[in-house]
């Protein structure tokens, strides 16, 4: 697995939304890639930080004012039928603009108060600042990512080395073969899905082994015997 791929899956990995193959690949990649591991920790910390935030309480007059504004927008649209009727998305955009215009007007003292005198501004400005602070690590890491990803492009090549190492465990007479097999087969899956098998691995289709197999195809079940024992 490359760093780019790991980065793209990291959020889903954190949320445990990946399938077992991808989950395993990301897990293995994080085990030895320092840059991605740091990225993961940063993302995790950010997520945890956001999780600890208390939802900012909106002032009591927020919703009535919002309803009032939206009503005003609707009324405005009704009394101006001569204007070209906008599309639904444009209407939504227009409503948003007017809503935000209202907030900005109020925040900037348009109703007589100072910049931060509006209760809405009091609630929104800290929330905005927290969001900016929380997003900083992500922005920073995204900025430096290309260089690090390029530098770590070769680290995946350790997988074939590790596979050779693990296979040697089969030769240890007291090793647990099922456990070794679990790691070896997992490694094969990782290398296959990460395109790390290299030119020395040969790929054929199961159909081509029919003649080599001493057992005839099981046509009834649409399956056939790939290998037959004992030889």
């Amino acid at each position: 697995m490359t760093c780019e791929k790991a980065m793209s899956l990291m959020s889903a990995y954190l949320d445990k939304e990946l399938g077992f193959d991808e989950f395993r690949q990301v897990e293995l990649h994080l085990a030895y890639c320092e840059a991605c591991s740091q990225e993961y920790e940063s993302l995790k910390a950010t997520k945890e930080l956001l999780g600890t935030l208390r939802a900012a309480e909106l002032p009591r007059e927020f919703w009535p004012e919002l309803r009032e504004r939206l009503g005003a927008v609707a009324a405005e649209e009704r009394v101006a039928p001569a204007r070209a009727r906008p599309t639904s998305s444009a209407r939504r955009s227009s409503a948003r603009q007017l809503w935000w215009r209202g907030i900005l007007r109020r925040a900037s003292g348009g109703v007589g108060g100072s910049l931060f005198s509006s209760p809405m501004a009091k609630a929104l400005v800290p929330a905005f600042l927290v969001l900016v602070l929380a997003a900083l690590p992500m922005v920073w890491s995204a900025h430096r990512r290309p260089a690090e990803a390029q530098m770590s492009s070769r680290i995946d090549s350790i997988e074939p080395y590790f596979r050779d190492y693990v296979i040697s465990e089969y030769d240890r007479p007291l090793s647990d073969k099922t456990s070794v097999g679990f790691v070896v087969t997992g490694q094969a899956v990782t290398m296959y899905t990460s395109d790390l098998l290299g030119p020395s691995s040969k790929v054929t289709r199961a159909g081509s082994l029919r003649e080599a197999s001493p057992s005839p195809p099981n046509t009834a079940g649409n399956e056939y015997t790939l290998i037959s024992y004992p030889r």
Binding site: I167, S168, Y170, A188, Y192, L197, S200, S201, K202, V203, T204, R205, A206, G207, S208, L209, S215, P217, N218, G221, N222, E223, Y224, T225, L226, I227, S228, Y229, P230
Partner: peptide
């Protein structure tokens, strides 16, 4: 039974031969 050790797979499955020990 020896049939336990016969691997049954659907047709068209890719066979990837990995470098062995």
């Amino acid at each position: 039974d020896d049939s336990v050790f016969k691997l049954q797979v659907p047709p068209g499955v890719a066979i990837v031969t990995l470098p062995g020990g």
